[in-house]
Each structure stands twice: as C-alpha cells, then as structure tokens.
C-alpha cells in the first residue's frame, strides 16, 4: 500500500516537472530567422588577409600545406624578383575535405591565414566547395 503511494508520488513529481517546463519559454532558436551569437574564435571557412597596403601577406612558405592532416590546401608559388619575396600564384582550399581542425591557421608564420565566422557554406555541387585564391583572399 505504501509502495503504491510512493510510486504515485514519484510519478506526480515527474509530471510536475514537465508541466512546469510547459510554461517556460523554449530555449531553441528559430534558426534561419534568428541566429545565435558565434564566438570570435569560431573555426569556420578560411580567409587570407592583406596587409595595410592592400598587398597579400602570404609568402607561400607552404607550412599550412604541409601541416594539413587531410591535404586540402594546395598552392603554387613564384618568386617576384622586384619585390624580392615569394607570392602564391594559386591557392586552393578544398572545403569538401577540410575538417576545420585549425592547424593551418595556428601554424601560419605570417598570421595571414584566419578563420571566418562563416558556417553556412552548403552548396549544390561539390566543385563549389573548392575555393580558389580569389575567394580566399579577401
């Protein structure tokens, strides 16, 4: 008999909790309409920075290419004799392979490769996930 009452009491207490939450404002967000704030450290797609003069900072040291665990970065490098430094003639990141580990950004000696807070990069074709230099250098 006591067992029945304790059981019923436990069941009613559980029901009270769900009933309480019935009147509490939901915690979910209506995603495409409202978006939650993303941390500034968010590891999104990659971006190359320019320096203050508007020149590209990347000198093609190939460290990011080497450190990438999934080999999704590839580049071609040439040497500009006039400026006496190297430039990349092409810089391609295959975001179909990228696992956003952030090792390339961490390793970049010139600090010119950074993550963007962008997380919405769904496309219809796989080809459009391969970003070339004109899209990465912003």
């Amino acid at each position: 008999m006591i067992k029945i009452f304790t059981y019923t009491w436990a069941i009613l207490k559980g029901m009270a909790i769900t009933f309480k939450y019935f009147f509490i404002r939901p915690v979910t967000v209506q995603y495409p309409k409202e978006k939650i704030k993303i941390s500034p450290r968010w590891r999104g797609t990659l971006k190359q920075l320019r320096n203050e003069q508007g020149e590209e900072t990347c000198d093609g040291c190939r460290i990011c290419e080497k450190i990438c665990p999934v080999n999704c970065i590839s580049m071609e490098v040439y040497k500009d004799e006039k400026k006496n430094r190297r430039f990349t003639s092409s810089y391609t990141v295959n975001f179909g392979r990228c696992m956003f580990c952030g090792l390339c950004v961490e390793a970049c000696p010139k600090k010119c490769l950074v993550h963007t807070p962008d997380f919405e990069f769904c496309t219809y074709e796989r080809e459009s996930l391969i970003l070339t230099k004109d899209k990465i250098l912003r």
Partner: peptide, 27 residues
Amino acid sequence: EKILDLYESVCGARLTYNYFRIGGVSA
C-alpha cells in the same frame, strides 16, 4: 549546449575540439 558554448568560446569548435597540443593547449 551550455558546455559546448563554453568550448566554442575557447577553441572555436563545438564537437571536434582539437584543443590540446603536445606541451600544452592551443589557446
């Protein structure tokens, strides 16, 4: 989600953190 938010603020990812480094932590 609250824990993941904290993680996101530290290492920038919510699931695959890749936060530890040999010799310390990344950030």
